[in-house]
Design a protein around this nucleic acid. Structure first.
Lengths: 191, 191
DNA sequence: GGCTCACTATACAGACCGGTATACTTTTGA
DNA sequence: TCAAAAGTATACCGGTCTGTATAGTGAGCC
């Protein structure tokens, strides 16, 4: 990726996230990136491709960020679940004040055959799988059930954060997750 | 509201929800409504006003739908909390297969001074207040805490439903809410 | 009958949309 | 050193965007 291409992607990412995908034109992206439209089209070919790379890049960054956080977390599965919420809180404070970019993109991309669609649904599926794997270590029988609850808390917290419904929803979700994990460990130990 | 205006609002509501607000032009709305642009502008004055009335109307319909469901629910607060989730499940099956229209609109409307902004945040605040009032009857000390958790489960379920993350997330949220309510009633009774 | 209101039909304005073409300059690496 | 790659600058394309203007039709109402 060339320097100009990187600047285009950075500008597009910021504008798409803050204003929405359809509300941002390629002329604006080029201007904000300090790049001509010629360069933009030489590198990306279409606006759609910029959208795809915006979401793919954001997905990749989030996974890398989360992986790093999980690596430094305590090695127990319960601690790692909580580390996901900690990572989301840190990530949201810096990059996601308007909520989840995948959810927001989904609001604008209706067609399931759009090339960005699998990126959006893929990230959510990946998160669910992550929760399911961790939950499986805690309560093998209730892994599906627990992971779905964690997913709802997590998604709900991101929405609540983006819409500013109440203060610090991600911490609240983390706390609730902690209660859930304790109960699951307790009931698994009894069995 | 005239007949033509109603047709415009119905067409706009469907198109805005399915394709996104910025992706739909007034020409298309007029064509789908079987109405000329002249009529459309005579009735609404601007596209922005159509957006505002679309969201306001949807908000009103949801509140009326929910109120009717709450009226026919068992009069206990716990049953009424669960009735909210039941209402959401029924509503989503019919009108909200792509998730919450307020959340989706928020993804496209960045400016807090946009006239549609207070409608979006207002509905979320109203829902939180509703949960808080009901939770207050169950556990006065923990009303804020419980209502926030219910809110996260509810919002998370709507997102999960819209993105099809897993099957029937609203029922899962309802079930989780039920567990929470039982625990809250139990701990309130002990005190 | 005459008046108003809601509506149709069509054309147009000016801006912006995504995308392309031509011509030229700068950077960079074998 | 020299050619390819990457970039700038600018003009343009057809189409669509929100919004307006002009002209006329039909129904209800006092």
């Amino acid at each position: 990726m060339t320097l100009a291409a990187r600047r285009v992607l950075e500008a597009a990412a910021r504008l798409f996230y803050e204003r929405g995908i359809h509300a941002v034109g390629v002329d604006l992206i080029a201007a904000e990136a300090g790049v001509t439209k010629k360069t933009l089209y030489d590198r990306f070919g279409s606006k759609e491709q910029i959208v795809v790379e915006y979401l793919a890049d954001r997905d990749e960054r989030w996974r890398a960020f989360l992986a790093q956080r999980l690596d430094t977390a305590q090695p127990t599965s319960a601690a790692r679940v909580l580390a996901v919420f900690d990572a989301s809180r840190a990530w949201s404070a810096k990059n996601s004040s308007k909520g989840c970019s995948m959810v927001n993109a989904h609001a604008e991309i209706s067609d399931p055959s759009h090339p960005a669609y699998p990126i959006i649904t893929g990230q959510k599926q990946w998160m669910l799988t992550l929760f399911t794997d961790l939950a499986g270590d805690i309560t093998p029988d209730g892994a599906g059930h627990l992971s779905q609850t964690l997913m709802l808390l997590h998604e709900g917290a991101l929405v609540a954060h983006g819409l500013n419904i109440f203060a610090d929803p991600i911490s609240h979700a983390r706390e609730q997750a902690q209660t859930l994990l304790a109960a699951a460990e307790n009931s698994a130990a009894k069995r």
